[in-house]
């Protein structure tokens, strides 16, 4: 039987492990410190644990770290890391250095089930959920791990379709026994899975980014099938009711498609539907994927759209495209070519 990894476990789960081995409750915190604070990669180095306990742990468990298998470096300094996530399964993470900060874009699923028209990850289908340990390994095993200032859950997969593991990973990231990162340094992206979004808002103080892409229901439906089940109007209703603006930042991601969602009519409607929500809007360049019927808006159009939103009082930025030459930019992550799983039959 495969040995179970300990990395990624919460303090409560580590407590259960310690109890199972007949250890005192405080051992959970010791384990957490070795795993997340002192960052050791073997049980042998956990010096304040008894030798017998360490040996017993090693019989049934592994620490559970996995270094990246491949690194691709962009001309703009962005790096894309490939991590194995179980046999024949891979995910990508993007390290995005800037002058004053360094952001890590994490994946939460191998592939994605959401089927958004503009996304490369969606084209590979869904091959599985990442455990909390596999999510956190993308940070812990990153060569630049110590430089990371911000974490965004915006890589492969829909984070809120893997809610339990995402919440566990956030607990480990933000707890004092864990990585002790401020939740203000963490942003989770979602296409708006309402029940999971409510839980996320209740249980964390992290920032939330909602993929919006069109303020018009019919148009959004053609881009994002999720609109059929969780309409934008209801997603925005939840955000209004949550009164979250004082505690966290809510942003809306808006990929700009030429002639589709970039007109003054769209800007006007966007301002209308966001009324009452303290938020910011990130305008994103579309990065074309094979076979897409979509194309990106011109820079001039994006600037005009940005101006209209700003004039209406909405904080708006045009997000820089990073790592486009290595397929690390927004919507381009995919490990389809590497997966050993046969193509899904239907």
């Amino acid at each position: 039987m495969a040995k179970e990894p300990l990395f990624g476990r919460t303090i409560e789960e580590l407590g259960e492990t310690a109890r199972r081995f007949g250890q005192a409750p405080f051992v959970a915190r010791q384990l957490a410190e070795w795993l997340y604070r002192k960052r050791v990669d073997s049980f042998e180095r956990m010096a304040n644990l008894s030798k017998t306990f360490r040996a017993s742990l090693a019989e049934e468990h592994v620490v559970g770290l996995a270094p990246p298998e491949r690194t691709t470096i962009s001309s703009d300094g962005t790096k894309k890391y490939l991590f194995a996530a179980g046999p024949g399964r891979f995910v990508e993470a993007a390290f995005i250095p800037e002058e004053r900060r360094a952001t890590l874009c994490l994946s939460t699923q191998v592939g994605c089930k959401m089927g958004c028209l503009f996304c490369m990850t969606g084209k590979q289908g869904f091959q599985g959920q990442l455990s909390a340990g596999e999510i956190l390994n993308q940070l812990r095993s990153l060569p630049e791990s110590d430089r990371i200032t911000n974490i965004v859950y915006m890589g492969m997969g829909e984070p809120l379709d893997n809610l339990a593991n995402v919440l566990s990973s956030i607990e480990v990231l933000t707890a004092d026994w864990g990585f002790a990162l401020s939740p203000r340094r963490i942003t989770v992206s979602t296409i708006g899975i309402i029940p999971a979004m409510k839980v996320f808002l209740e249980r964390t103080d992290c920032h939330l980014a909602v993929s919006l892409h069109s303020p018009f229901e019919d148009e959004r439906r053609t881009l994002m099938p999720v609109e059929n089940l969780y309409p934008l109007a209801e997603v925005l209703g939840v955000l209004r009711e949550s009164a979250i603006a004082r505690r966290r930042r809510v942003s809306f991601e808006y990929i700009m498609f030429g002639g589709l969602n970039d007109t003054p009519r769209h800007a006007k409607e966007l301002v209308r539907v966001l009324d009452g929500i303290r938020c910011r809007v990130n305008l994103i360049h579309f990065h074309p994927i094979p076979g897409t019927p979509l194309h990106g808006s011109s820079d001039e159009t994006m600037l005009g759209f940005e101006r209209r939103l700003k004039e209406s009082g909405i904080i708006t930025t045009i997000r820089k495209s990073r790592g486009q030459d290595i397929m690390a930019a927004c919507g381009l992550l995919s490990t389809k070519a590497l997966t050993s799983r046969p193509q899904a039959d239907y």
Binding site: M114, P225, N228, G291, P293
Partner: peptide, 16 residues
């Protein structure tokens, strides 16, 4: 889409 169907004519419901 490759056969010329406008993507606006396609509506999808997915399992998740």
């Amino acid at each position: 889409i490759a056969r010329g169907v406008p993507f606006g004519n396609i509506s999808s419901e997915i399992y998740f």
